[in-house]
């Protein structure tokens, strides 16, 4: 199992979190933690998602990126290294 931290920027839509969780589970990643916050001036939400899986993280990044309301998805390398250590 590898651990990853994803930083996801999205439009602030009620259903976005549900979509991300559904895709994450379906594509074979376990959710180890989640924090989410909204910037009220630009209505962009930032979601930090801690996941683990044997599958390559690019698989999940590509699938989350396909969701319509997603602005960007990045692996937080610092956080990932920490949790691996």
């Amino acid at each position: 199992m590898n651990n990853y931290t994803l930083i996801i920027m999205t439009d602030d839509k009620q259903v976005v979190l549900e979509r991300i969780l559904q895709v994450t589970r379906y594509r074979g990643f376990l959710i180890d933690g989640i924090t989410a916050s909204v910037n009220n001036t630009n209505n962009i939400a930032t979601i930090e998602l801690l996941v683990s899986s044997d599958r390559p993280i690019t698989l999940l990044i590509d699938q989350i990126n396909k969701l319509v309301d997603i602005k960007s998805v990045k692996v937080d390398n610092n956080a990932t290294q920490l949790s691996n250590a």
Binding site: P56, T58, L59, D62, Q63, N65, K66
Partner: peptide, 8 residues
Amino acid sequence: IDTAEINK
């Protein structure tokens, strides 16, 4: 056309 199909 779908990035997610590459290397899937």
